[in-house]
């Protein structure tokens, strides 16, 4: 465990706390994408299947359970609990999940076939591909609302920071671990995912620097 990885994980936890706080404080689900949360839940459930077969560390297991549990709780709130259910605007969150799920599954099957992976690795690879695009529905919703609420903006910022820090973590590990296993699929997806946040970061920092409302160009 290095400082970049730990900071990345904490940034991820922090983003989830901010989203929960945002729902609680604003008492609505305006501008929050349920589709992104559902994609993240699928990502976590498929990636952490190894919870059932092997133990890495207490830290790893606890974080995995925390990610699955908190994301499931957010989905439950938006889907079934008031005032979130009635304020969630389904028509703005129109991303079709199958457009992300099917290509990722096909890619994961091809990758697994080439690498001779088993069942658990197939789902692990699927989750790597899916995580890269899981933020897309949320970015689309933001684009439609145009003006970005502070807390929603911070949520996406910390989620993006988590991915950026993971890239630094890989660089650090590549230099410091003698037999570090390079996984180029993971690297490629990590870069794609971070790149998706680049545009958001640009406007986020611009709004922080100049003050005033944070809005995205339409």
């Amino acid at each position: 465990m290095n400082i970049f990885r730990f900071a990345g994980d904490m940034s991820h936890v922090f983003s989830i706390i901010i989203l929960l706080l945002r729902l609680h404080v604003a008492k609505n689900a305006n501008g929050v994408s349920l589709k992104t949360q559902e994609l993240f839940l699928i990502v976590f459930c498929t990636r952490y299947l190894d919870l059932l077969i092997r133990f890495i560390s207490l830290y790893n297991s606890a974080m995995k359970i925390l990610y699955i549990g908190s994301t499931a709780a957010i989905i439950h709130m938006i889907r079934y609990r008031e005032p979130y259910r009635s304020t969630y605007d389904r028509s703005q969150d129109s991303f079709r999940l199958e457009f992300a799920l099917i290509p990722c599954l096909v890619l994961a099957m091809i990758t697994s076939l080439i690498r001779g992976f088993g069942f658990i690795e197939l789902f692990w690879t699927f989750s790597i591909y899916l995580e890269a695009v899981a933020i897309l529905p949320q970015l689309i919703v933001l684009q439609r609302y145009s003006v970005v609420e502070n807390l929603t903006g911070h949520y996406i910022f910390f989620l993006g920071a988590y991915r950026g820090l993971y890239i630094l973590n890989w660089i650090y590990r590549a230099y410091t671990e003698k037999h570090y296993h390079h996984d180029y699929v993971v690297y490629a997806c990590g870069f794609v995912q971070t790149a998706l946040y680049a545009d958001f970061f640009y406007y986020y920092f611009q709004s922080k620097y100049y003050g005033g409302t944070f809005s995205l160009p339409t």
């Binding site: 994980d9 830290y59 974080m63 990610y67 692990w124 993971y166 890989w170 570090y180 390079h182 993971v186």
Partner: peptide
């Protein structure tokens, strides 16, 4: 912590 590249990450 067992080390296995990206698989021991989150």
């Amino acid at each position: 912590e067992r080390r296995e590249g990206a698989k021991d990450e989150l």
